[in-house]
Simulated assay, not measured.
Amino acid sequence: MKPALERLGLTLPEVVPPVATYQPAVRSGNYIYVSGQLPVSDGQIVATGKVGAEIDVDQAYDLARLCAINGLAAIASVVDFAEVKSIVKVTGFVASAPGFNAQPKVINGASELFGEVMGEAGKHARSAVGVSELPLNVPVEVDLIAELNVSGTTYLA
């Protein structure tokens, strides 16, 4: 994973501290459950507003990508990446202006980042959901589930 991140010119940030009473990621058996990640960089929310109004699809795509990077950082706070077998499930929430229905295009930012970083192990099931509001007025939130490798074989690039 680290070579793939470096090749893409990316580094994992510090884990975004929770804004309420929860953990950024929790291990349960062979899975890591990652709480909803917001578009935060250097401790600051990058953008606020509704997609399809204040935020356009391209900007929201980039924000979903940032959420995914923050999700990887949350995983790294719980386990060594050599233990990660794959990303199993991604759920993306898009704060949508009335009439906006391109949520899948937005959440592609997260899905494509996982594929770039993890190759085949980044392919996952997914939901892209339009909502009226998200915490702190962010336009995008992404949560995910990762499966851990129990055989000792590393699956990531």
Rank of each mutant, 00 (worst) to 15 (best):
E120F: 11
K123R: 06
K89M: 14
Q23N: 11
Q59G: 03
I107Y: 03
G115D: 05
E147S: 14
A25T: 07
A73R: 03
L134E: 10
A121R: 01
E116M: 15
Q44R: 14
A4Y: 05
G99C: 04
S151D: 15
D62C: 01
V131K: 12
A25Q: 04
A64D: 06
E6A: 13
V140K: 00
A95S: 13
S35W: 11
L8S: 10
L156E: 02
A64V: 12
L5P: 01
V19G: 12
L10P: 05
L66C: 07
P98S: 09
Y61P: 02
V106K: 02
G71C: 10
L8A: 10
G36A: 13
C67L: 11
G49I: 08
E120D: 11
I145P: 00
T91Q: 11
V117P: 01
D42F: 10
E112S: 15
E120S: 13
V140D: 00
A102V: 06
A53I: 00
F81H: 04
S86L: 05
G119H: 09
S127I: 11
R27K: 13
A4Q: 09
S151C: 07
V78H: 00
V94C: 07
V117K: 00
G122M: 04
R126L: 12
K85R: 13
A60G: 05
V131W: 13
E54A: 14
I69M: 13
V40K: 00
A146V: 02
Y22F: 12
N137I: 03
K105M: 12
K50L: 15
A125R: 14
T153S: 04
A82D: 05
L10D: 11
K50D: 05
